[in-house]
């Protein structure tokens, strides 16, 4: 039973205000959004910051829904379960997610993330316009704009890592920060 206390302490240490682990669907996405909105409402956070958090949450959650599906078709084991967290530190919020990805998909993801992190505000705007003009929706309904949008709303670099899980799978960890003070975003 000790792990319950340990988990509780770990959440406090890492300033985690919301955590969800398991299968992700559109229904869980909606529930998590409602919960987070209530949480932010009661914290009296500024509306611009709240909208950015909401924005990044939707993209992160819908990314998980798509990725989990992909792995599930190939592998019926529990390895497709993902995690979603929100951190609330003094100066910023962090939207964090983790989900398994097949190793053959890592190079594409890395290239996209590295490109996004190499761009400034105007570069991201141009990339957004380039993608929206030229892509068609994927089979999974993605427009390929999720990471770009997250980076634009964050105003900071995306933090990411791939943790080795098995021969076929890695665990893709993503952290998107949103500064609590609007001026800090403008200066970034």
């Amino acid at each position: 039973m000790r792990f319950i206390y340990d988990l509780h302490q770990s959440m406090i240490t890492h300033n985690v205000i919301l955590i969800y682990e398991g299968d992700f669907t559109q229904e869980t996405t909606k529930s998590i959004l409602t919960m987070a909105e209530r949480n932010l409402e009661s914290s009296g956070e500024e509306s611009g910051i709240k909208k950015r958090i909401f924005n990044v949450m939707v993209e992160a959650l819908q990314n998980i829904v798509k990725h989990s599906d992909e792995v599930e078709q190939q592998d019926k084991s529990k390895s497709h379960a993902a995690i979603f967290l929100i951190g609330n530190e003094q100066s910023r919020y962090s939207i964090m997610s983790g989900n398994p990805v097949r190793k053959e998909n890592i190079p594409t993801l890395k290239t996209a993330l590295e490109r996004i992190n190499s761009l400034d505000k105007d570069g991201l705007k141009e990339l957004y316009k380039e993608i929206i003009k030229n892509t068609t929706l994927s089979e999974k309904g993605g427009a390929g704009l999720g990471f770009v949008d997250m980076a634009r709303k964050s105003g900071e670099k995306l933090e990411w890592d791939f943790v080795d899980v098995s021969d076929e799978l890695s665990f893709f960890c993503l952290k998107v920060n949103i500064a609590r003070i609007k001026e800090a975003v403008a200066l970034a």
């Binding site: 924005n55 993209e59 929206i132 892509t135 929706l137 993605g142 427009a143 704009l145 999720g146």
Partner: peptide, 12 residues
């Protein structure tokens, strides 16, 4: 009030 990136493609 809000739209996600997949919707932005359809709005276009």
């Amino acid at each position: 009030e809000y739209f996600n990136t997949a919707s932005s493609k359809l709005i276009l």
